[in-house]
Design a protein around this nucleic acid. Structure first.
Length: 487
RNA sequence: UCCUCCCUAGCUCAGCUGGUUAGAGCACUUGACUGUUAAUCAGGGGGUCCUUGGUUCGAGCCCAAGGGGGGGAGCCA
């Protein structure tokens, strides 16, 4: 390579144009700067304004940190109308001196020399006040709720958690695989799908037998939004050894609960040469690494949420980090449940019986009452699990694992995959699945198959655990759910 | 989709057994106040009581249907 063509990726020199404006300093930096009457520029949105005839105090926030910086404005130095326009929600740029605060609530403040108003916010119509609002009200103002302390904290944590995910897998030698968002007919059976089409819904082309003729549709067959990247992930793992996906996932189920969304983000690692034990080890290490990262990176935001919403949040994060997850089989869990006083007193609404899927109340009992810590359940009856899971030697169970968290329920679902072509094919036929659509997936077992495992993590459920939010609609920018597509 | 609760001022909520002109705090507005911390104090304006229909001399309140939202369940991550 010619020496002149060498590119310095990490130290790019930029030749600035002539400076016209003073450069903004993020409030997070200003709050951590020693005050020495240096001239600084802060820009952000007004939280509150207080004061008297002589001096006004503005709490300014730019989203860089949960704390506001206090702007001090001498009434005599500023136009009356300008000061009046600094109402809650307005956006301003302030140039002034960074000084030690005379007041008690903060260390530093800005003594304003000039204030420019970028955008006013009429107090009569601006929905947010300097008072606490209900989560329901904020949900109906999703475009503005980002400006509140609570949602600022939530979205800084959301970013940190995303970063923690990529960072963890990168350290472990995984590759980030971008699997398709639009897929062909439902192969996995993971639930109702959203259909994607360019056909004219008012004039659908029909075949001779009266069915809709998808050969005339955009892709030449029916198409849907993905419900999981797992099957494609397996193709990745059986080539790159360790991959993960992290993308939007769509389920058209009519679910109206505090822990379901129609559009959510899912993380799906898939690993060649991993058995179910390796899979569990990775999942536990992964969850702990993410929690540890966010706890360190977002200490202020977590402290705020702990103080305001959930006094046990920090304690719970610490507890999960310091304790081993309880691991047991489905059969053992059923025994514990059947032998519990809770069951004997008839307090379970649904029956506890081997072969039947555990209900929410059963999972909660195990996690919140019996073990009082995260639980990993493995080896479920094959009838209640997906076709691709590894069939155990007992002929009755599959190598599935679910990780259950307090207050949230299932946060991870995974399994070792069936790598044997004949066994997998038998299951596909047993369940009457569409072999044609699965040809490429079955091929993975015909050519260079290998033992492999993986799991799926609901990103927003992890967010609920980290933030203490009790409704999944409050940890995503704009929740998509039945009858809800605003913002 | 099922069960259940809720809907009263911009926001949070009170409103008795069905009875005159529907209230409070915050927000807004006017005034007071030399450093406030959701500033404070005093005055003022502000209502389709979710909608429609019914019962009644009289409905915010009782009944029915519809709409929106919360909590729980199922499906799952």
């Amino acid at each position: 390579m010619h020496p002149k063509r060498k590119i310095a990726y990490f130290s790019v020199q930029i030749f600035p144009k002539k400076k016209t404006n003073m450069k903004r300093t993020p409030i997070v930096e200003l709050l951590n700067t020693a005050p020495a009457e240096q001239t600084v520029n802060a820009r952000g949105w007004v939280k509150t304004k207080r004061g008297n005839n002589f001096v006004n105090f503005v709490a300014l926030n730019d989203g860089s940190v949960i704390h506001d910086i206090q702007i001090v404005a001498d009434v005599a130095k500023f136009d009356e109308e300008l000061l009046k326009s600094l109402s809650t929600g307005s956006c301003i740029s302030v140039i002034g001196k960074l000084v030690a605060s005379q007041g008690k609530g903060q260390k530093v403040e800005i003594q304003a020399d000039s204030i420019e108003v970028y955008g006013t916010a009429d107090p009569d119509t601006y929905p947010l006040q300097k008072k606490a609002h209900s989560m329901e009200f904020l949900r109906e103002n999703a475009h503005l709720r980002l400006r509140t302390n609570t949602f600022g904290a939530i979205f800084r944590i959301r970013h940190a958690l995303s970063y923690a995910v990529h960072s963890f897998f990168d350290r472990k030698g995984f590759y980030y695989l971008h699997t398709p968002v639009i897929t062909a007919a439902d192969a996995e059976g993971a639930g109702q799908m959203f259909q994607v089409t360019t056909l004219d819904l008012k004039k659908l082309p029909l075949t001779e037998t009266g069915e809709i003729d998808f050969s005339q549709d955009f892709f030449g067959s029916s198409a849907n939004l993905t419900v999981s990247g797992q099957l494609q992930g397996e193709a990745g793992a059986l080539a790159l050894s360790q991959v993960y996906t992290f993308g939007p996932t769509f389920r058209a189920e009519n679910s109206n609960t505090a822990r379901h969304l129609s559009e959510f983000w899912m993380i799906e690692p898939e690993m060649a040469f991993y058995d179910i034990q390796d899979n569990m080890d990775l999942a536990e290490e992964f969850l702990k690494a993410c929690i540890a990262y966010v706890r360190e990176k977002c200490a202020d935001d977590l402290a705020f949420l702990n103080e305001r919403y959930d006094k046990e949040l920090l304690e719970r994060l610490k507890f999960v980090l310091e304790n081993q997850f309880e691991r047991l089989t489905y059969s053992e869990a059923v025994e514990i449940l059947a032998g519990s006083n809770h069951h004997k007193k008839g307090k379970f609404q649904y029956p506890v019986k081997w072969g039947v899927d555990l209900q929410s109340e059963h999972e909660r009992y195990l996690v919140e009452q019996h073990f009082k810590k995260p639980v990993i359940l493995i080896n479920y009856p094959k009838e209640i699990k997906s076709f691709y899971m590894k069939q155990n030697a007992d002929g009755k169970t599959v190598a599935a694992m679910d990780i259950l968290f307090p207050g949230i329920g299932e946060i991870i679902g995974g399994s070792q995959r069936e790598e044997n072509y004949d066994k997998l094919m038998a299951r596909v036929r047993e369940l009457g699945m569409h072999e044609e659509a699965l040809h490429w997936y079955l091929d993975l077992r015909r050519f260079g198959s290998a033992p492999h495992s993986g799991f799926g993590l609901g990103f927003e459920r992890m967010m609920m655990f980290l933030t203490g939010m009790t409704n999944i609609r409050d940890v995503i920018y704009a929740p998509r759910a039945p009858k809800q597509i605003d913002f």
